[in-house]
Design a protein around this nucleic acid. Structure first.
Lengths: 198, 198
DNA sequence: ACAGGCATGATACGGGTGTACCAGGAGAGC
DNA sequence: GCTCTCCTGGTACACCCGTATCATGCCTGT
């Protein structure tokens, strides 16, 4: 049963090659052959470790989600202490915004997958839907801020959380589309956070 | 010089077939042959009227932009009289949100093009960038509302306009992604508009 | 030492892609 | 009436795609 090579390591190597291509050239350029070349392995190997292309796409997407979550947790950890609701919310939303190479890569690749899901709704069910969870967590943090008197108690936390998340998504799209740079987007986000917290 | 057939009409027919496919199956399914079949013409005709595929893509995109603009103007006209800044802003943002079949179609197709631009930045320059114009117009309306006392004068109209537009984009993505329906998105938008206008 | 199975390489197959080429019909100007 | 230009159909070419097949190495348990 002892494998000669580290299966997981090989899978990771190949899946990350896929993500690299999806970032630089888009998902539609990520053919099996291109992934194999990018990963420095033969086409047969890609087929061996991920029987079908759909399997490869799904596996790589799961890894992308893990990467984003790790980034968010890192931003929260670096948000300063104590981790007040405002700091946590700011950290999360900032981590999503494409302001540095890593977040640009993650956002861009997410967008590529998003389009894929739109054109092929079948795979949508196989994709873990975590934005709802994130939105719920944000709303929770906003309510905590209300309890601490940092946000006007008359506000609807759920609406505010949904609006903020949507705004960050939209800002990310505008950055990727070249409409403005990351700093400008970040400025808009922090401005609205400043309006919300008083 | 008298053409036997109406060139513009034929081009429109073909370009709209492309847009129909982009909506239902995604841009990557919009091959020359598929467009020809959808339009009910031969492949050769598509080649004849749009020499290259890029030409067809660009032409169809321009038509899509025209359609969206027409929709926005229709919404503004139906916004009620007098056309106060609040009514105009609400009309514009609502028209973008994918709440009915037409807006779903437009939003979805725009998203498809957006991904295309991301993966092939060369065509980005050939695409008319109108979001900046729209954002400026929105900011103008918000300033007018401030002058009329409908919005707190302390607000930054530019920031608010950018935030609203980004939010609507993000909300649209969430609707298309199946995260929520159009009414929920509309509720979130109107809630934030209610917070802004007081 | 040997059998068995995991891991890898090379290559083939059927299909879809954008584009190019060749041919012919139909109306207009001389 | 002839020619010439605009328009249209059919088809071929070269390429890329995902997947399947055949063959072979090499490590491991006995």
């Amino acid at each position: 049963m002892t494998a000669k090579v580290d299966h997981e390591e090989r899978r990771r190597q190949i899946a990350e090659a896929l993500l690299r291509i999806a970032d630089t050239e888009g998902l539609q350029s990520a053919s099996m052959r291109a992934v194999a070349t990018e990963a420095g392995v033969s086409l047969r190997l890609v087929q061996y470790y991920f029987t079908t292309k759909e399997g490869l796409l799904l596996d790589a997407f799961a890894r992308l989600g893990t990467q984003l979550q790790a980034r968010m947790e890192r931003f929260i950890a670096e948000a300063g202490s104590p981790p007040t609701p405002r700091r946590v919310v700011t950290a999360i939303l900032t981590s999503i915004l494409p302001t540095d190479p890593e977040s640009r890569r993650i956002t861009r690749t997410y967008t590529a997958y998003y389009t894929l899901v739109l054109s092929d709704p079948e795979v949508m069910g196989k994709v873990v839907q975590q934005p709802e969870l994130l939105e719920g967590f944000l709303a929770e943090q906003l309510r905590a801020a209300q309890a601490a008197g940092e946000i006007d108690a008359g506000r609807d936390a759920g609406m505010a959380a949904a609006g903020l998340l949507a705004m960050v998504n939209g800002l990310g799209s505008s950055v990727l589309g070249g409409q403005r740079n990351g700093e400008a987007a970040l400025a808009i986000l922090t401005h609205h956070l400043g309006e919300l917290f008083r």
